Simulated scan of single mutants.
Amino acid sequence: MITVMNRIFVNPEFADQFEERFRNRAGMVDSMPGFIRNEVLRPTREGDPFIVLTYWDNMGAFKAWTESDAFKQGHARSGSLPREAFSGPNVLEVHEVVGQGEQ
């Protein structure tokens, strides 16, 4: 299993709009082969990024998502926020899960 973490720096005055965008997301990723789940994490300290965290069976499944028409359609909605909503470039990180705790 892998995680893909997208750290997105959002100016505080646009935080509510950013969160609303995810509450009303297209959901196209949900039916992609190999997709497990996603989480949107709100920062607790000013200046820290939001984190969009997705879980995938493997890197091939994630790569297939990024090359799909559904990915292009889902991300076309990102135009709903103006450029000034973001305080810096996003940072994408991919990690392999090597252990899980009990729930």
Rank of each mutant, 00 (worst) to 15 (best):
E67D: 15
R83L: 09
A70K: 14
I2S: 12
G79E: 10
P49Y: 06
P12S: 08
M59K: 11
N6R: 04
Q17Y: 03
L41R: 05
V29D: 03
R21D: 03
P82V: 07
F18L: 02
M32P: 00
M28E: 11
R21W: 01
V4E: 05
A85M: 09
F35Q: 00
P33E: 08
M59T: 14
R77V: 15
N24C: 00
V97F: 09
Q73L: 11
V94S: 06
P12W: 05
Q73T: 14
M5C: 05
F18M: 05
L92A: 14
S31T: 15
S87T: 09
A15V: 02
L41W: 12
G101F: 10
Q100A: 10
V98N: 02
F22D: 05
K72L: 13
P89M: 08
E39S: 11
E93G: 01
L41G: 02
P12L: 02
W56R: 12
R23C: 01
E19T: 00
S80I: 15
V52M: 04
F86P: 09
A64Q: 13
L41N: 06
P33L: 09
Q103N: 08
A15I: 02
N6M: 08
E84A: 11
F35R: 02
M59G: 00
R37W: 09
L41E: 03
I36C: 00
P33G: 06
Q17K: 15
A76Q: 13
R45N: 10
T3A: 12
Q100C: 06
F35E: 05
R37M: 08
E102W: 13
D16K: 12
P12R: 04
E96F: 07
D16C: 04
T54N: 12
V91D: 11
I36F: 00
F9Q: 01
E84P: 00
